[in-house]
């Protein structure tokens, strides 16, 4: 398994003087599903934005040993263009790359179908539910066939049922596409259910305080949510998180 991204001694201090990240070291391997878990404001989102190149580190480096991969980004909000249909929204990355309209439409339609939105191509965002909007957002992230998908609490604003459903559908997509995911969440249970590995961060300024390999391939199986293995994993993550909180207090 090759290394896709290496963060070394990464620090970020904002112009306001706020230090978000302090000396973060993290390697993300090809095909991994890595969750970043930590308290609010610990710099999880900043880490994602640094990997995406949307902001520059104050110190340290981000390197891509196998070359900079094609990336996709999913935000907590669906972040759709309200004036565009589901199809046009899903097509956006292809439009920006200059893919011919006919081919782009075909691929966007396929991506919407994969996320369970067949028949909603012509719908505008305001006509869709919160869960469906998030599915459009995921279809848009998949349409460019990225190697690395960065997700910033994508399911946090959804109700419990929709969230569980999207977790499973997303795991199926992840497996089929064979891509690498860096997933920010503040839900221990969600991290334990989805990930192959969990990096626990300390309160601000964020550091990685525990790197927990869960040692299995996550499967979209709802019964697993209440299994003893998952409970044990959740406890390990939770213990590390509380340890970090206590140390900071």
């Amino acid at each position: 398994m090759g290394v896709l991204v290496t963060l070394s001694h990464l620090s970020k201090t904002f112009d306001s003087g706020l230090q978000a990240l302090a000396n973060v070291d993290l390697q993300i391997g090809d095909g991994e599903f890595v969750s970043l878990v930590g308290p609010s404001g610990c710099g999880k989102s900043t880490a994602l934005r640094l990997i995406a190149g949307l902001t520059k580190p104050t110190a340290g480096t981000i390197s891509f040993p196998a070359g900079k991969p094609e990336m996709g980004f999913v935000f907590q909000e669906p972040t759709l263009m309200p004036w565009a249909t589901a199809l046009s929204n899903a097509r956006l990355p292809l439009d920006l790359k200059g893919v011919a309209r006919g081919e782009a439409n075909g691929r966007a339609r396929a991506a919407l179908e994969e996320t369970g939105l067949r028949g909603f191509e012509a719908a505008y965002p305001r006509e869709l539910s919160g869960g469906m909007k998030m599915r459009v957002s995921i279809a848009r992230a998949f349409v460019g066939r990225p190697k690395l998908l960065l997700m910033d609490e994508p399911f946090a604003a959804l109700d419990e049922m929709t969230r569980a459903e999207l977790n499973d559908d997303f795991l199926k997509l992840w497996k089929a596409a064979g891509l690498t995911v860096v997933f920010v969440t503040h839900s221990v249970a969600e991290a334990a259910y989805l990930s192959t590995r969990v990096a626990v961060m300390s309160p601000r300024p964020g550091r990685i305080v525990a790197d927990i390999a869960l040692g299995r391939a996550p499967t979209p199986d709802p019964s697993r949510r209440f299994s003893p293995e998952l409970a044990a994993d959740a406890r390990r993550i939770s213990d590390a998180l509380h340890g970090a909180m206590k140390a900071a207090a």
């Binding site: 995406a52 949307l54 990336m71 980004f73 909000e77 972040t79 990355p93 920006l96 790359k97």
Partner: peptide
């Protein structure tokens, strides 16, 4: 939407895009 602008930048859009 700031995030939407970031997304476009990630996908390589310029100022005019």
């Amino acid at each position: 939407d700031r995030n939407l602008i970031d997304l476009l930048r990630l996908y390589g859009a310029g100022r005019f895009g």
